[in-house]
């Protein structure tokens, strides 16, 4: 009997503890659960601090995509209508989210860090067509309202640096200094 009673008390203690502890469920959608920092949600196309698009329309994301979910149509920048640094930009950029498997290969393939899988996970649609998201939906807002693209080039004729000089933190090495220290 004591055995049964102690088990009952044990059980009720658990119940009582759980009654008093804060709930683990959320009142979704009123309250949204924070996601881990490296969560892979819906894609975004980022901009440089000056508002130019990071995407240069190179299609490497599309080439890396195992689900063939990305379509990129490139075009050439002009001085009058500059979208991105360098010669080339994405005239059209579409992702089919029904195909996407959120593997993040596109992010890895991107030479400019333009495409990033962000934290938006609310990806439900009423029809298949709206699951294909376009460049307008993907592109983040410019840092300032007057920094949107396309815009006239601030540095006409400069078509260099399509790819940012340092990605992943390779520091310049001064060979002369190195030789001296040896």
């Amino acid at each position: 009997m004591f055995q049964g009673l102690s088990a009952l008390i044990k059980g009720m203690l658990t119940t009582g503890r759980e009654m008093l502890s804060p709930p683990v469920t959320y009142q979704y959608p009123e309250i949204k659960k924070p996601v881990p920092p490296r969560f892979r949600g819906r894609h975004e196309l980022k901009r440089h601090p000056d508002g130019l698009e990071k995407c240069i329309g190179c299609s490497l994301c599309a080439a890396a995509c195992p689900a063939d979910a990305i379509y990129v149509k490139p075009a050439a920048n002009t001085d009058a209508e500059r979208y991105s640094p360098g010669e080339r930009y994405a005239a059209s950029y579409e992702i089919n989210l029904l195909r996407c498997i959120f593997c993040g290969f596109c992010e890895e393939a991107c030479p400019t860090g333009a495409i990033v899988l962000e934290h938006d996970y609310e990806l439900a649609y009423y029809d298949r067509r709206s699951a294909i998201i376009t460049k307008e939906q993907l592109l983040v807002a410019p840092p300032e309202s007057d920094m949107s693209t396309p815009r006239a080039a601030a540095d006409p004729g400069n078509l260099y640096a399509a790819i940012p000089p340092v990605k992943g933190g390779i520091e310049p090495v001064n060979i002369v200094e190195m030789a001296k220290s040896k």
Binding site: C58, A62, A63, K73, P74, A76, E87, R88
Partner: peptide, 8 residues
Amino acid sequence: RFTARVFE
């Protein structure tokens, strides 16, 4: 020029 990548 800039209409597609050759592997596409």
